[in-house]
Deep mutational scan, measured.
Amino acid sequence: MAAGGDHGSPDSYRSPLASRYASPEMCFVFSDRYKFRTWRQLWLWLAEAEQTLGLPITDEQIQEMKSNLENIDFKMAAEEEKRLRHDVMAHVHTFGHCCPKAAGIIHLGATSCYVGDNTDLIILRNALDLLLPKLARVISRLADFAKERASLPTLGFTHFQPAQLTTVGKRCCLWIQDLCMDLQNLKRVRDDLRFRGVKGTTGTQASFLQLFEGDDHKVEQLDKMVTEKAGFKRAFIITGQTYTRKVDIEVLSVLASLGASVHKICTDIRLLANLKEMEEPFEKQQIGSSAMPYKRNPMRSERCCSLARHLMTLVMDPLQTASVQWFERTLDDSANRRICLAEAFLTADTILNTLQNISEGLVVYPKVIERRIRQELPFMATENIIMAMVKAGGSRQDCHEKIRVLSQQAASVVKQEGGDNDLIERIQVDAYFSPIHSQLDHLLDPSSFTGRASQQVQRFLEEEVYPLLKPYESVMKVKAELCL
């Protein structure tokens, strides 16, 4: 049975990233139509530049190519590739079939990587351009969430054990800070992308030097003109047959890092959902379990974690691919890159769409948070109580021993009897502590235990987050809708 299948058929496997999760716009960027249309555009740009620099290419040939950029006979191309065992030459023939007058000058002087690699770089750039505003929107939604809850005390956790208090907004800023680093890295790697350009079979530009009869300047002009037509500021000066596969490492490393950030955020949300302090959106008709109707599973956060793990592992592909590119190139890269580049971007696209949807509907339960604080705060307040007693004339050592005994009794009630923490009640009825009984409410005010959390939130948002989001103001209103 021949390899390949009808990918629109229910009898043929289709990647869930495309069929179930990723956005239509990201799927289109990695589609065959987008790819092969870009090949034709690159052939047109090459012909236009070659004509401008004096090669015998007519206006009629150029116009014929322009008129057929979208006229792609995919069936013919597939048949040609089956016959020739070469995808680029299959599309040269297919393009030439609908451009008979231009057929002889299509791909003039070029090698397969002229269309293959340059198209990949265009796709990487455009895919990054799709991700950047999506990530900015996630940051914006979380920034709104953090600002609104900047002063809401909550129990902090280290080692997932109760620690000092923080605020809900401050905790959210930990998430935002990681995503801001990801946004900066995505922008950097996007701006650092260079075009492969017009380089020939081993990167020496020998074929173009021959076409222009040894004119170095025209060869350099050709490279520059096509690079500018493709919208790049610069091209690699040095290439082998391909652009260095280190570029793929750079791009997928940034995406993998984004995956790590999203995994951490969504894990926190899942843990908070278990504590009943916070939940992701839950639709009115949504079913959490087929057997347990009360369940409210954090399905979206779980999906993000599941896909983020996949995204983090994909960076190993370009690392290994770059390491086995012998001399000017081997074909070890080809099949692998067809999979890992598309999957990385479709996965990143999915987790950003999902995280935006989550961040637009996060639900906080202040009463649950308050109750958990009441359970733990008495123990945390013991040092403040000791200091207040010393100020009232008591002995630190005597007070410490009193607190120690009462704390152990209260802990026994919590752990052995399943009761509430009654340390404060014990202190309130103990005559030894009568000098500070009137101060206990103040000493137990949760806001006095959150330090500068709310001020940190305000400063972080104003100095770091809002300036970073400013270039994306025009796209901030787009909502994230999930079908599944």
Rank of each mutant, 00 (worst) to 15 (best):
Q375M: 12
G451R: 03
E328L: 02
C113S: 12
T166I: 07
Q397C: 06
R149K: 11
H400M: 04
L132F: 10
L179P: 04
W45A: 11
T354S: 15
G197Q: 06
Q397K: 05
L307R: 01
S474A: 14
T242E: 06
H263R: 04
H400W: 03
A150H: 13
M299A: 13
M292A: 01
S9R: 12
H400P: 01
L46H: 02
S334I: 04
R270G: 02
K295V: 01
F74H: 09
R329G: 04
K479I: 11
W326F: 14
I424S: 11
L362V: 09
F379A: 04
G104M: 14
R85V: 13
I358Q: 01
K82S: 10
Q356G: 11
I339P: 01
D6H: 00
E213L: 14
F74E: 15
S395K: 08
L307P: 02
L152S: 06
A47W: 00
Q428H: 14
I373K: 00
Y365I: 04
M389K: 06
G451T: 00
E148W: 08
I403Q: 02
S9F: 15
L258F: 15
S23I: 05
A103C: 11
G109K: 00
I176C: 11
F145H: 10
A411G: 13
R83H: 15
E328M: 03
L142T: 08
A3N: 15
A308C: 14
I237N: 10
D191F: 08
H93Q: 15
N357P: 03
C172L: 05
S207R: 02
Q397W: 03
D192W: 10
C305Q: 08
L443K: 04
Q210P: 09
Y21W: 15
L108N: 06
D215L: 08
T267H: 11
M387S: 15
W326A: 06
E328W: 01
P446A: 07
T201Q: 04
V226C: 08
F379E: 03
W39P: 00
A273G: 15
D216W: 10
P24F: 14
I339L: 11
E464L: 09
I123T: 13
V413Y: 13
G96T: 11
G361Q: 14
H107G: 00
K75N: 13
C180E: 07
S359I: 08
F30Q: 08
I358A: 14
E328S: 02
F160R: 02
K199L: 00
L128V: 11
S474N: 15
W43H: 14
S454C: 12
L482Q: 14
Q456F: 04
K284Q: 14
Q241Y: 01
R374D: 15
D59I: 09
L362F: 12
D117W: 01
P162A: 05
A322I: 13
